[in-house]
Amino acid sequence: MRNYTQEQLERYSRHILLKDVGVEGQDKLLDGKVLIIGAGGLGSPAALYLAAAGVGTIGIVDGDRVDLSNLQRQIAHYTKDVGEWKTESASEKMVAINPDIKVIQYNQYLDASNIRGIIREYDFIIDGTDNFATKFLINDACVFENILFSHGGILRFDGQTMTIDPNKTACYRCVFNAPPPADLVPTCSQAGVLGAVAGMLGTVQAAEALKFLTRAGTLLTNRLLIFDALTMDFRTVKIEKNDNCPVCGSHPTVTELIDSPAAVCDLKSS
C-alpha cells in the first residue's frame, strides 16, 4: 500500500469511503493505466473524471486541433484553446485538476500500423472516436491484444455503450458485423448532437474504466446500454458472444488489422 499524504487522503476521501473502493481501490487507480482514444465529446468528460479520480497514467490520442464548433460539447477545451492541439489542451486541464497523474499525449491518429503498439501499454481503453472505421479498428486491435475496452457512440439525442472483455464477452463485431455503408452514415448537415449527451455517455465510459481498475461491481459486458435523451429512456439490451463473429468467432475472417476508408464527418473540407 502507498504512503498517502494528507493532501491525497483528502483528495481521494470520497473514494476511500466507498466500501467497494477503499484505500486498496485507490491504490489500484493510482497504479492504473487508461488510454482514451479521441479527445472530443466522449473523451473530454472521460479524461477529466479519470484525472480527478487519480488514474495514475492516462494516455490521450487525437490528431486534431480544437475548433470553435467543438466547444459546445468537448468540455476539456476552452475558448482560449481554439487552434491548439486537442491532446495538449486536454492534458493541461487534466493536470490542473490533479497534479498526481501522468498524461501521455499521442498527437496522432491511430491506424493499423500503430494501434497495437500503443494500446498494449494500457490496462483499459476508452473508445471516444467519431467514425466507424476507427471503432472497428479499436475493436479488432483490442481483441488481438486481449485488452478490455469501452465502446461508445452518440448521435443527436441518442447514446450507446458497451464494455468488451475480448474473447470472453461479446465484442463490437459480434453485434455490428462491419462498418455501415458510407451512404447510410449521416452527413454533416444531419449529424447534430446535444452537447450534454456526450457528457452522459463519456462519464458512463469513465465509470466503467474506474470499475475495472478497482474491480468494483459488474462491468457493462454482454449488454448494450442505449439511451434516448429526448425521452430520457435508458435500456440495456442483452447481447451474446457470437460464434460466427468475424474477429472473435471460432472461424475468424478478420485476422489482421486493415485500414478501411473513414466515413468521417468533416465539415471544414466538405
Binding site: 500500500m1 498517502y4 476511500i16
Partner: peptide, 14 residues
C-alpha cells in the same frame, strides 16, 4: 468528517 473515517480506514487497511 469525513476524514475521521478515512483515517480509520487507512489504518485498518494496513
Amino acid at each position: 468528517c469525513p476524514m475521521t473515517f478515512v483515517k480509520a480506514k487507512l489504518a485498518l487497511a494496513r
